[in-house]
Structures are given as C-alpha cells and as structure tokens.
C-alpha cells in the first residue's frame, strides 16, 4: 500500500524497530511491578509480553504509515483497542473461573480492577511506541545513534509519566494497620473488645482461634476514608491478599466496627508470620471502583448557586 518502494528504507526500519523495542520494554517493566497480583508464572508473562509486543508493533508502524499518506492506518488503532478490550474480558473470565479455587474469593470489584489494569498496561506499550516513533520522525538527528538515543529517551520519559499517572494507592496510604488482641468468651470471638463472630461454639474452634489465629485492625486515618475501607469489594480484596500471603487453615472473618470505623480481619493462617500478614494488608491496592476524590465531592467551587 502507499509507497512506491518495495523495500523499506533504513530510516524507517530503525524507527519501527526502536519503537517496537521501547513499547515491549515498557510492557515488561510494568509487568514486573505486577508480580504480586497476577501473573507470577511463565505462561502469564509470555502471554502479556507477546500482547505487549503486538501493541507496540501497531504503534511503531503507525507513524511511518501516516508519513506515506496511508490514512487507513488510523483504523488499525481502533482495531487494536478492540483487541485490548478483549484482553480485559479474557482476564476477567479467567480470574472469575478461579474464584472457587482460591482460599477466599477475590470479589468482583478486585477482578474488575485487575482486568482494567491489564488493559491499560497494553496501552502503555502502544503509547510508548507511538511517541518514540513520533519523536524520531519529527526531530531527525543526522546520526543514526542519536536518532535511536532520542527515541529511547522519549520512550522512557513517556513511560515514566504514564506510570506515575496510572499508579494507584494502597491501603497503607489511608489507614493504620495494627495487630489485634484475640479473646474468646463462650462462643463469641472478640478482637480488641470488638465483637467479631459468635460462630465459635466448639472447643476445638475456640482453642484454635486462641492459639493460632491472627487479628489485624485497619484504622482509617481520616473519617472519609471509612467509605473506602468499609466497601465490601475492598474488604474482600484485603482478605484475599491476606489469605494469599499466609494461607488459611480454617476460619477467616472480616468485620466492620461502626463506632471506631475500624475494619478487622481474623485468620487462622497456615504460616504463622504476623509481619507478612500486616505487609500484605498494607500493600493491598485501593480499588479504582471504590476510590473517590475528596476534592470532587466539595461542590459549588466554581459553579455556585
């Protein structure tokens, strides 16, 4: 299509290759950051690096295609976006099908968040490779090495900005996480004097909870963070991360205390390591669907009545 040359020029091939490499690298860099959630296995890596590679290829050929007045190239992008939305769907489906096999389910809100993250990370690869190619095309340094260097630097800057933009917050940013003291009275379970459950009627359960259970209290730093922490999806996500870090032998409970605003988790773990548990809770991402901007809730700033 487009050009008369049947063989691609050296300029173009450098541009395309650099952009492709930068885009793929961008995907690999953000994939590593993701290991805690999913995927932490070779096949998961393989799939996502390959999709990232395809995304960056699409981005890389976009600029040369436009340069040869090939306007159809724009439609490729919409095709790509369709593909990435499929990535999100696939991700969602595969996580949902795993729900029954986990210690505790992730919950729909968490799955939605993870799937969206996967989709957006493919756009990282696309955007990085487009901007790399664009920079190399617009400002053409005389030497090949300078040209590539310019592309690489642009790519990294764009990646850095995108990463900052899409970075989510974690539970530790809005709450104080502490170990709680477990008590059992009759068939009732208390943590720091707060009622959790009365489902511990058997002697075995009582002994196990007293001897082996861990309790963690999550106390929001500010009043309005309670809305985020009390959200059912968010609590499920926290419980999931906690049980995934140290396993669960039997009982697990979450409870909200409306008086103090604390959220409490109790688990009888497989691995008795309270620090690991606290770390897992701290590092649980705040779900996008739950988060809200406090600033936006202050109405009538400019549109006063």
């Amino acid at each position: 299509m487009g050009g008369q040359e049947s063989i691609i020029s050296t300029d173009n091939i450098t541009l395309i290759l650099t952009a492709m490499v930068m885009g793929t690298l961008a995907r690999i860099f953000v994939l590593k950051e993701d290991y805690r959630q999913y995927p932490s296995y070779p096949n998961g890596y393989m799939i996502h690096i390959l999709i990232g590679f395809i995304a960056s290829t699409l981005g890389a050929v976009f600029i040369p295609a436009l340069m040869t007045s090939n306007w159809v190239a724009v439609t490729f992008l919409s095709l790509a976006i369709q593909q990435f939305r499929d990535v999100r769907k696939t991700e969602q489906e595969s996580l949902k099908s795993l729900e029954n096999t986990e210690f505790t389910p992730r919950g729909d809100a968490y799955i939605d968040g993870i799937a969206k993250t996967f989709e957006s990370r493919n756009y990282f690869a696309l955007v990085v490779s487009i901007s790399t190619a664009a920079a190399m095309q617009i400002y053409k340094p005389p030497m090949l090495i300078l040209d590539i260097g310019l592309g690489v630097i642009t790519g990294f800057i764009v990646l850095f900005l995108l990463k900052r933009f899409s970075k989510g917050k974690q539970v530790e940013d809005i709450a104080i996480i502490k170990e709680g003291q477990i008590e059992v009275k009759e068939s009732e379970l208390f943590v720091d004097g707060i009622f959790i459950s009365n489902l511990v009627g058997t002697d075995n359960a009582q002994k196990m909870l007293l001897k082996e259970a861990f309790a963690v209290t999550i106390e929001p730093n500010e009043e309005h963070y309670r809305i985020t922490l009390d959200n059912f999806g968010q609590r499920k996500a926290i419980l999931f991360e906690a049980t995934r870090a140290i396993g669960v032998k039997r009982y697990h409970y979450t409870r909200k205390d409306f008086e103090s605003g604390k959220t409490i988790i109790v688990i009888v773990p497989l691995i008795r390591d309270i620090n690991k548990l606290i770390e897992a809770v701290k590092k649980t991402p705040l779900l996008e669907s739950v988060k809200k901007s406090h600033a936006l809730m202050d109405t009538n700033v400019t549109s006063g009545e």
Binding site: E186, S187, V200, G201, A205
Partner: peptide, 11 residues
C-alpha cells in the same frame, strides 16, 4: 460452624 445460644441450645 457452631454457636451456642444463651439458653444452651447448640445451633
């Protein structure tokens, strides 16, 4: 799971 009511019934 088991709970004991205050009048002594196990559920």
């Amino acid at each position: 799971d088991v709970t004991k009511t205050s009048n002594g019934i196990f559920l």
